[in-house]
Design a protein around this nucleic acid. Sequence first.
DNA 1: AATCAAGTTTACGTGAACGTAAACATCCTT
DNA 2: AAGGATGTTTACGTTCACGTAAACTTGATT
Lengths: 139, 139
Amino acid sequence: MNTQTRYSISDLAREFDITTRSIRFYEDQGLLSPERRGQTRIYSRQDRVRLKLILRGKRLGFSLTECGELFELWDHSNSGSELQLRLMLTRITEKRQALEQQLRDIAMMQQELDGAENRCSEALNALTAAQNAAKATQK
Amino acid sequence: MNTQTRYSISDLAREFDITTRSIRFYEDQGLLSPERRGQTRIYSRQDRVRLKLILRGKRLGFSLTECGELFELWDHSNSGSELQLRLMLTRITEKRQALEQQLRDIAMMQQELDGAENRCSEALNALTAAQNAAKATQK
DNA sequence: AATCAAGTTTACGTGAACGTAAACATCCTT
DNA sequence: AAGGATGTTTACGTTCACGTAAACTTGATT
């Protein structure tokens, strides 16, 4: 079971296949704030989730700053003044629209890949057909 | 109708809301190769499509080098040796898997946004409810 | 006690993707 | 012909996201 509750920096580095340098850098940027036992950083399950979110954001081409904005949305979404909350809702909508644009982009790129794949395997068929023909004549 | 067949560099810059510097930079990186009339660059419809693909790739977090790889897939997908073609098919598969990962990432992030939005509007409801209660007591 | 792995801070280096500025050529208009 | 819009090359500057190296502390192991 996933009963682990605390992680060292190299635990996380290993699990997500990144360097400890990166993890400390994310902390520098204010995206993580693990506990300290003396000098040593100790990461909670929440920290681990944050890290996972950071990496997911990066895979989607978001900058670290944008990831931080998403955390703000997440963290303060049940507090704040009415104006704050309204502002947050519009920002959530913006992010959502960006994601929908990405979905469209992915769909189109998948079509391009389909096209390339088809032409590719057709060319391959043509080649092997030619080879078979050559073999047949050789006999 | 979209009958235009040639574009200046600033035509494209305006249309896609990027600088001419970027367009020339993409050319430096081998992603574009427009005709020349003397010194001046003239972009065809194909060039325009390429540019559109570059920007789409960028929105998906691909580097310019990766965009270039995708163009290779597209351009040479109907020529080359058998080995070349097989290699290309595996690379197409790789790209497709990357896109599928992105789809999963987007789905999860949309869920997070849903959660944030819900908590956000609940907090907002609580606030306005409190305000109404205050008004009522004031009467 | 010694050493060794794992962690730390500090600081400079790096590649990608442009921005910005200078100095110049071309063409069109007035 | 003088100016302005649009284009060009060349080259140095900048931001982001780390990499790399040095010099140090701390805790566990032999």
